[in-house]
Every structure is written in structure tokens, then in C-alpha cells.
Amino acid sequence: MFPVAENDNPEKTQVSAHKQATLKGLQAQLGSAGVTLPALGPDVTDAADRTEMLTSLAYGEVHELWAETIVDYTAAMACLLMAVRDSDKPILWVTSRAVALDHGLPYGPGLKQYDIAPERIILVQAHKAIDALWAVEEGLKTDAFATVVGECDPVDLTASRRLTLAAQTHGSRCLLLIRSPEAPSSGAHSRFRIAPAASLNALFDAKAPGDARGTINLVKHRGGERPFSITMEWPSHAQDYLSMASEVADRSVAPRAGEPVHATG
């Protein structure tokens, strides 16, 4: 069987229905010939398409960036910042007092590294989680924002469906940054589980860490996209750029002529 991401709305997903029909026909032909179709591994993907999926999330939907632990939150935040750069309109950023105490608030110089002007951020810090959800829902009901960001605890299924309905009705986009040890039940269009990954050594200094990396897993997609797992990298010279990570092969750690040598202690 091909691994297929969870699709909890198949009757409204014409593309998925076509793919499923094609897949069933192929499996029937192979089955009659006595051929077993092997499952594709999680890393067998089109790298360019997978990168674009994260940085061009669809409007009119709710998308979840899921961090299982507090350690995973930084990588999830970096992916969120990459996803909100596709428009110059203001961003409504909603958080609660509890989340702000754990993770802080958006930081101007950090936003600039991702090519996001701090003045685009309209920050709402709600006293309670229920107030934060109300602010997110109301923000989705206007076309004034490029994206409505919600930093929140896992929302229940009813609240999630309300946000989805607001996003679909008004053509707006909601990105929920959620920290939870277990996958919450929700009506979101997609969910990415994000965690940090070990970096390689720096190219010119074996004692120093290399560029930051993160592992991104698609675990849910109502359009029927296959799940995948990829490792992404943020080059130290361009933090606003997200690329597929690749191993350094057949390259010397010695600097090339004319390049500075970094002292090591």
C-alpha cells in the first residue's frame, strides 16, 4: 500500500478522489499479475515540491505547525516565519499570557532576519486561551491580514472547526503554532510535526557547529498528500532562506586560498 496522509474530508476533495481511483486501478492491475507494490519510504519525495508546500500554505484553510516538546518549539517557529513571508499585508499575531511566559513575544531584529518588517505584526496578547481563540476567529473574518497566527495550546475539535469555517468562508489563512505531547483532534487542512535536527560540523572548523537544521514531517493533509519527512537547513549567511539539507562530500575542511581562517580555542 502507498502511505497516504489522513484525509478526513474525502467527499469534498476532487483531486484526492481522482488519485485514489487511479491508485486502486493500478493496484488491481498489479495484483492480478501477482506483483506486490512496496511501500515508499518517508524520504522518497520531490524535494522542490516539499519545500514549496511549507512556504506556500494555501489560503482559505487552517494549518498546524506542531511542536511535541518545548525543545521543538524554536524549529517550529522558524518554519512559521518562513511561511508568512509570501505577502506584504499585516500579520495578526495572537498569543496568550501563558504562551508568552513560556516562549516570549515576537522580536524585531529576529523578524528582520526573516525579511519580515516588524511593523507588519499586529500583536494581540490575550489574558486567557479562550480570548486568544476568539481573537484568531475574528481576525479570520477580515481580509486585512495576510495571515492570522495563533500561538496556543491545543484547541478542541469544535473550536478548530469554527476556525476552519471562518477561514474557508472569508478566504483567509490561519497558522496555529501548537505545543502538545500528542496530536490533537482538529479540522485543520494540514499538520506538520517539526523538530530540531543535528547539524553537521562547520565547513572550516570541525569544532564548531554547522548550520541549523530541522526535521519536518507532514502527518495530516485533507487533500490526500502522501506523508513525508525531510530535513531542512537554514544557512548561516541567509537565515531567511530554507533549503534541503545535503551532506558535505569530498570536500576538505581546509580554507580555500584567500579565505579567512577561523581561530579555534
Score class of each variant (00 low, 15 high):
residue 183 A to T: 15
residue 155 V to M: 14
residue 172 S to F: 02
residue 107 Y to S: 11
residue 107 Y to F: 15
residue 177 L to T: 10
residue 112 K to Y: 00
residue 156 D to Q: 11
residue 129 A to Q: 11
residue 143 D to C: 01
residue 135 A to V: 11
residue 107 Y to R: 06
residue 168 Q to D: 11
residue 143 D to A: 12
residue 168 Q to C: 02
residue 140 L to V: 04
residue 207 K to L: 13
residue 210 G to P: 10
residue 203 L to R: 15
residue 130 I to V: 12
residue 198 A to I: 14
residue 122 I to S: 05
residue 100 A to W: 03
residue 183 A to S: 13
residue 93 W to I: 06
residue 211 D to L: 06
residue 137 E to F: 02
residue 194 I to Y: 02
residue 145 F to G: 04
residue 176 L to K: 02
residue 176 L to P: 01
residue 94 V to D: 05
residue 136 V to F: 01
residue 174 C to D: 01
residue 191 R to P: 06
residue 200 L to H: 08
residue 104 G to W: 05
residue 104 G to P: 13
residue 111 L to N: 06
residue 197 A to D: 13
residue 134 W to C: 00
residue 170 H to W: 11
residue 110 G to C: 06
residue 118 P to K: 02
residue 141 K to N: 09
residue 141 K to D: 02
residue 173 R to L: 07
residue 108 G to T: 09
residue 119 E to T: 12
residue 160 S to Y: 06
residue 127 H to M: 08
residue 109 P to N: 05
residue 196 P to T: 02
residue 130 I to G: 00
residue 131 D to I: 03
residue 198 A to F: 08
residue 96 S to D: 12
residue 132 A to T: 08
residue 189 H to S: 05
residue 208 A to K: 15
residue 94 V to K: 07
residue 102 D to M: 14
residue 126 A to F: 08
residue 166 A to T: 05
residue 158 T to H: 11
residue 121 I to Q: 03
residue 113 Q to H: 04
residue 167 A to Y: 07
residue 125 Q to A: 07
residue 117 A to I: 04
residue 121 I to S: 03
residue 88 D to V: 13
residue 211 D to H: 14
residue 90 P to S: 08
residue 157 L to E: 10
